[in-house]
Design a protein around this nucleic acid. Structure first.
Length: 560
DNA sequence: AGTTTCGGCGCC
DNA sequence: AAAGGGCGCCGAAACT
């Protein structure tokens, strides 16, 4: 018995599966079963299942009550490996990987399916992309070799394993669902928006605010149409470039107050109103369709439902089951702590080695105690601020934490020059990300029809190049943070498996566990332990700590 | 008529 | 105080 088995659909129905040796080759006879659930259920001692697609396979296992310990997602690994090899534009299906291996014509990736409310996420149409077991294993074996060819094979192996674990977590979260009280949601909507009118038009409060805006302008204005609002301000003698809130709010005009209020409520109405509730909440659960690693940086996305943008007021509707609690855990100052870990800046590591407020410590050292300025400087360094006070503050930051600032500056320069930029574990930023230009241009190689203005010139980066620089600067921090959170989730998932507790929500640096009241303290401890373990596994031994703020609540809105 | 892009704003 | 990174969502506008 080996601890890794590969599994694939069999010709004529059912599945075939077999054990893998240390070299990644089939190391024993191939078995057959009527379906994946039966195969997995019959081999509880298998530690890792190698399959083509977790999003395709695992929801069906979960539907029959079968959980797996670990997996290896061949198509996800293909995506990460292609990225690392600077070939992110190539098709990443297992079938494409096999074709590259065998030298045949490489099939393009099938188009993505659009999201449907309540649907289990599934990236690919199943019919045309399945590989027989022996072919899948051939791709897997080659992928093992390709891991070895990376700059840090151990980190790359950790990355593909971690993201596969993330995909298990995502599938399990989608199955569990976020506890959601439709009754509370409706009450919140009614309190904010007033009664709904028949015919699906604006609710009462929005209609009233629209009337107030119109009255202030002295003519009918539709506050949801930016062009209309800009025109109305112009007629009132006020020039506005846009109707963004920060721009509107500085204007002295009676329409501003109802307009800003309208925008806020309009947003809730269209994005998380009654029709959202109708579409996305079933039997007391909201199933967000989490997709691990859905973005270039490795952050997750959700497939419909806007789960990562739930407005704070709507969180009132997230309510634990009777006798259960929500453990809401939020990583404290995650990005600067990650920057400390990846840059190995001694000063920043020392600051990040404490669990206390990092921005306060930074400000004590570099900003004479002005925490707000310190926070702006750190975020400016991470996001690539180009103007304003942030630049001045960045200089102060650079004096005290030179290695940290140099780390993101180097990433920005690499991005501007079209070079590859990687996270700590090896997730790679495609050169074209955020720019939409072709590869030759990205690499600074002139092409025949280039407009010279767009081409990269040393020392005179174009607007696009600078945008790529900002993207790359942010990528190394945000992406390495995503690396760390994958390891965190994997560890926390293993702890929760020992209890009734379930992971139900994840949002970049925040996780929610739904558990019986008596397990809540154990879950809080598990989060602390998972954080420490993830820090060690991801970044090695560093002084950096990753503390969480945790709250045990019955309602998500009470966590902050 | 159907599809893509844009403006604005929610979250991190 | 000014408007830098990542996303998704919606309706309207701008296209094919």
């Amino acid at each position: 018995m080996t601890d890794r088995w590969a599994l694939a659909p069999a010709e004529g129905g059912g599945v075939e599966f077999g054990p893998l040796g240390p070299d990644g080759l089939l190391a024993g006879p191939v078995h057959r079963a009527p379906d994946a659930a039966e195969a997995v259920r019959g081999l509880p001692e298998v530690m890792r299942w190698v399959w083509r697609s977790t999003a395709e396979t695992y929801p069906r296992l979960l539907a029959t009550g079968v959980r797996v310990e670990r997996c290896y997602d061949v198509e996800d690994a293909e995506t990460l490996l292609l990225g690392h090899e600077g070939r992110s534009g190539e098709p990443r299906s297992a079938a494409a990987a096999l074709a590259r291996l065998r030298g045949g014509p490489v099939p393009p990736d099938p188009p993505q399916r659009s999201a449907e409310p309540g649907a289990q996420s599934s990236l690919f149409e199943p019919e045309d992309v399945h590989l027989p077991l022996t072919d899948l294993v051939a791709v897997y074996t080659e992928q093992q070799r390709r891991h070895d060819a990376t700059a840090h094979p151990d980190r790359m192996r950790l990355l593909t394993a971690a993201e596969s674990a993330g995909m298990l977590v995502a599938a399990e979260m989608n199955r569990a669902g976020l506890p959601w009280s439709a009754e509370v949601h409706r009450r919140v909507l009614h309190d904010l928006l007033g009664e709904r009118y028949a015919g699906g038009g604006e609710p009462r409060r929005l209609a009233e605010l629209a009337d107030e805006v119109s009255a202030a302008f002295g003519r009918r204005v539709r506050p949801d149409l930016p062009a209309d609002v800009v025109k109305a301000f112009a007629q009132a003698g006020i020039k506005v470039r846009s109707t963004r809130r920060w721009e509107i709010e500085s204007i002295d005009h009676p329409a501003v107050k109802p307009l800003v209020e309208y925008k806020k409520l309009y947003r809730i109405w269209v994005a998380h109103g009654w029709s959202w509730l109708q579409d996305w909440v079933r039997e007391g659960r909201f199933r967000p369709g989490f997709l691990a690693g859905g973005t270039v940086t490795g952050r997750w996305v959700t497939n419909g439902g806007g789960a990562l943008q739930i407005p704070k007021v709507i969180r009132r509707a997230v309510v634990a089951d009777p006798g259960w609690r929500l453990v809401v855990a939020d990583a404290d100052q995650m990005e600067p702590r990650v920057l400390a870990a990846i840059s190995r800046d001694p000063g920043l590591m020392e600051v990040a080695g404490r669990e206390s407020d990092l921005y306060q410590s930074v400000s004590d050292r570099a900003f004479s105690g002005d925490r707000a300025q310190a926070k702006l400087a750190v975020l400016g360094a991470v996001y690539g601020q180009t103007s304003g006070d942030g630049l001045k503050n960045l200089a102060a930051l650079r004096r005290r934490f030179p290695k940290a600032v140099a780390y993101v500056d180097d990433a920005a320069r690499a991005g501007e020059e079209g070079r590859l930029v990687r996270t700590w574990l090896g997730r790679t930023c495609p050169p074209a990300a955020g720019a939409g230009e072709d590869m030759a241009d990205e690499a600074g190689i002139p092409t025949a029809e280039d407009d010279s203005e767009q081409r990269w010139v040393p020392g005179y980066a174009s607007t696009d190049a600078r945008a790529r620089g900002r993207f790359a600067r942010n990528f190394v921090v945000q992406g390495s943070a995503a690396d760390w959170t994958l390891l965190l989730l994997a560890a926390l998932r293993q702890s929760c498996a020992q209890m009734a507790a379930e992971l139900v929500f994840f949002q970049h640096d925040e996780v929610i566990v739904h558990c019986p009241e008596e397990e809540a303290e154990a879950v809080v401890a598990a989060i602390r332990e998972a954080s420490a373990l993830a820090g060690r596994l991801t970044f090695g031994e560093t002084p950096v700590r990753f503390p969480f703020t945790t709250a045990v609540v019955e309602c998500y809105a009470d966590a902050k």
